[in-house]
């Protein structure tokens, strides 16, 4: 896969977030030194981040790239994990804990190969039973088990 220098990417990421914070604080009262408004520190810290990110990026751009700089991106696992959490978030309120748990486990298992469908099914059932028993029955969390 592609190889990029991590520090340049990191500098870009920090600069983006710093920029968002500076822009997002524009509507906030900066205030005075005695009465600092809500915008005073976010703006200050955001600008500091932009400056330091520039230093980080420049330093990386000037340095000679080495083999250690290679970043291996394997997006499969993280994508499956995020999809699993997303499925849980989407389903927990409409269909309850049992369905959301099964969906999470099914999606998460795509993060690993081979897929082993039989084992996944067992895990889905076991996970649903465990979460229903422990969280709803024993700990009495007010979470619906089934669709209302």
């Amino acid at each position: 896969m592609q190889s990029t220098r991590p520090d340049i990417l990191a500098a870009g990421l920090f600069a983006t977030i710093g920029g968002i914070v500076v822009a997002g604080s524009r509507g906030l009262e900066p205030g005075t030194l005695m009465r600092m408004g809500p915008g005073y520190l976010p703006t200050t810290v955001g600008i500091l981040v932009l400056a330091l990110a520039a230093v980080l990026g420049l330093r990386a751009a000037l340095a000679r790239p080495t083999d250690e700089d290679r970043v291996d991106w394997r997006l499969g696992p993280i994508a499956a994990i995020l999809a699993a959490l997303g499925a849980f978030a989407l389903l927990i309120d409409p269909i309850g804990l049992v369905g959301a748990t099964m969906a999470l486990i099914a999606a998460a298992r795509f993060a690993d190969r081979p897929l082993r469908p039989g084992e996944t099914l067992v895990l889905m059932l076991a996970g649903a039973a465990f979460s229903a028993l422990v969280f709803v029955h024993l700990l009495q969390l007010p979470i619906a088990l089934w669709p209302a």
């Binding site: 994990i81 978030a89 082993r116 084992e119 979470i143």
Partner: peptide, 27 residues
């Protein structure tokens, strides 16, 4: 690990959700 990680992920999701009954916290 292929059995452990879905369980850990599940607890994370339930933990995030149950703290304030918030789907937003899962997101």
């Amino acid at each position: 690990y292929r059995i452990l990680f879905p369980a850990v992920l599940l607890f994370c999701a339930i933990g995030a959700y149950s703290y304030a009954h918030s789907v937003f916290d899962v997101v």
